[in-house]
């Protein structure tokens, strides 16, 4: 599980600049609605994460991901498959 935690920490770090005042980014944060962020910036951040963890997260799969934890689990699971 350390992989998921690792990925989650990286996602939280990348998304922190977009948090609303007086709130924190956590595993339960819903990316598109709990943050002040647009979908293109999310795609760009995912690209950074893809490079960091050497995976490709297909955009069609991204569309189903809501929370930070789901994204972390997806990246970790793609990574373990390769």
């Amino acid at each position: 599980m350390t992989m998921v935690n690792d990925v989650e920490a990286s996602i939280i770090e990348a998304l922190s600049p977009f948090r609303r005042p007086d709130s924190l980014v956590t595993g339960d944060t819903v990316i598109m609605t709990d943050l002040d962020i647009d979908s293109v910036v999310v795609m760009d951040i995912v690209m950074e994460l893809e490079d960091k963890f050497e995976v490709s997260v297909p955009m069609d799969q991204m569309a189903r991901i809501k929370t930070v934890r789901e994204l972390a689990q997806t990246i970790a699971s793609i990574r373990s498959e390769t």
Partner: peptide, 8 residues
């Protein structure tokens, strides 16, 4: 229905 990958 394809898998979509975005490149820089």
């Amino acid at each position: 229905k394809a898998q979509i990958v975005r490149f820089r």
